[in-house]
Design a protein around this nucleic acid. Sequence first.
DNA 1: CAAAGGTGTGAGATCGTTACCACACTACCG
DNA 2: CGGTAGTGTGGTAACGATCTCACACCTTTG
Lengths: 346, 346
Amino acid sequence: MSASPQPHETHELGLAQPITLADIAREAGTSPSTASRALSGRGYVSPAARDRLLAVADRLGYVPNASARTLKRRSSRVIGVVVSDLGNQFYARLAAGIEQTLREADYQMMVLGDNSEGDEELDGARTFLAMRAPGVIMTPVSSDAGELLRSQGVAVVEVDRRLTEGCDAVVIDNEAGARAATEHLLSLGHTRIALLGVDTEWTTDAGRLAGYRAALAAARLPADDRLIVRIPVHVDADERIEALLRDERPTAIFAANNQLAERAWRLIRRRGLHLPGDLSLVAFDDVPWMQMVDPGLTVVEQPTLELGRCAAKLLLQRLESPSLPPAVECLQPHLLVRGSTAMLVR
Amino acid sequence: MSASPQPHETHELGLAQPITLADIAREAGTSPSTASRALSGRGYVSPAARDRLLAVADRLGYVPNASARTLKRRSSRVIGVVVSDLGNQFYARLAAGIEQTLREADYQMMVLGDNSEGDEELDGARTFLAMRAPGVIMTPVSSDAGELLRSQGVAVVEVDRRLTEGCDAVVIDNEAGARAATEHLLSLGHTRIALLGVDTEWTTDAGRLAGYRAALAAARLPADDRLIVRIPVHVDADERIEALLRDERPTAIFAANNQLAERAWRLIRRRGLHLPGDLSLVAFDDVPWMQMVDPGLTVVEQPTLELGRCAAKLLLQRLESPSLPPAVECLQPHLLVRGSTAMLVR
DNA sequence: CAAAGGTGTGAGATCGTTACCACACTACCG
DNA sequence: CGGTAGTGTGGTAACGATCTCACACCTTTG
């Protein structure tokens, strides 16, 4: 083996170091300045020189060094996105919507997940600060991250939840959605309606709780605190839900997000209860499985993709005109009745 | 309004420009070099100076400029990930696994979706090249992107599919999984077993087809080409599946991925057919809804999270020792029998 | 014919960080 | 006491792209 002559492998041996603007300029017989103007499309270049430079760049497979560009321009084309949990289809879809719109405007998206943890969110903010992202979209956990970013001149849009006063935001009309869900249950004759929610100060949960209460109040029904189950973030919901199903079981449950709905659904099934005969169930947020199970879940459907798109649009707008007054968009959810809710029979 | 005196808002007016190393150095009375050594933790610094610098940095909220660092070091801490479709829970989970492992090693992950399009994949590669990502993990569509990256000295790991010879890769034993699924159906007495797969040259589909064929061959059954339905990428599968369900319906279907399984499942239901009475169904890849529907789907479960983790580990290893021979890891799937498959009754 | 204006180019400084190198200082050894 | 070794520091030149400026060349016009 060592005796066999080594074949020429000139193009393989070195980790061919990247082509730079200077290389292009040299090859095309211009200065780096001109090359920069031609390839970035800013400033005067004669058509002849431009074509020549473009051709050379193409031939050599030139890829501009993003770090150098960002360093010089003091701003990158990467928009940061921080969501609670990428594994949750709601957030995944949200991110997809954001990506769509950003891509059209020729921005990149970088997604990070905090786990609904203020610390991780702050880390994320610092990451984007370090990358000189011009803007960040997030489902905020605490307002620290947003404030840090904004203090450094980074545009911030809050999506789904609204935490920081004076910040652009896109939200769902949670109260209306929750009211619709609750009214639907009331109209079916239910009076013992449980609310399954997350125990936070977030506008989502607060809004959904408010909508639930409003519907009950409008029906002149007292809200029974034992039926309002609020589970802290990061706490396993199963125990609380089981207790709810065991003791003085309500005739209907309104689950305020897709995860709680899934937990509830599984426990209902495990207990051998039947939807909607033994119990009615409504979920806030529609995800694919809810349509596939039998009976399908009645849900408050959110325009999730649109939520993301809208947030991205708002961000782009803010980047263009930083001095505009803060905008808050509110999208309407709507009730989609499937088979998991039915008339109360006694 | 215009008459009211403007209050001092010194800290609000300017988009407070970021703190730099030089600022820290000046404040702490050292040179930038020393500050750099202290804050990046490379090279000699006296404990006294280090503490002082760290304190100042902390006080001023210093965030290192990632672009400058990347430019100088000629390599960033961002690992690129390109997957086919982030909306698909399989890829989402894969990315989650990758992220977990990378985070532990203090790398960031940037995910991009090509839509199983070679062009978009190549764009992604160029993006990561521009960002000077030291490594990229991808579910390859064509080998162009990987080759481009590797030619520039970027470490590449292929995951799920294997396309490029001499490239690190982590895959599932598709053939074994498909064989297990098919043998399971055969053992239930099925002989007219359809295969629903994607029409590509990818190792996933090729392996699953091979496993299917191998099982049939071992049972001395001829493979009926009309039962092998291979749908090109980006083509709607519904028509082909409907045709399959209509004409000379097979008694069992093996769907080679979660999406085809979902399409098939929906069409089976729409047609009013019952699982497993009228038809048995097995899916390759287990996703949540398959356990929630009734009957639950029999599946070939893949260690998806582990697949991602393993790919990330391989990449980290490669970054550490670039000259190691290429490694290919193969993980085992396993059959999980639920209710969608049953003994054939005639 | 001088002045004014457009067109196209290149020199050179700069963005913020790092790394190489030289240097200064102390300490210890033969 | 000269010499080697270890500590700790700062000067300076990069990394690659951009951008301001000055300048050179053409027209056009009062």
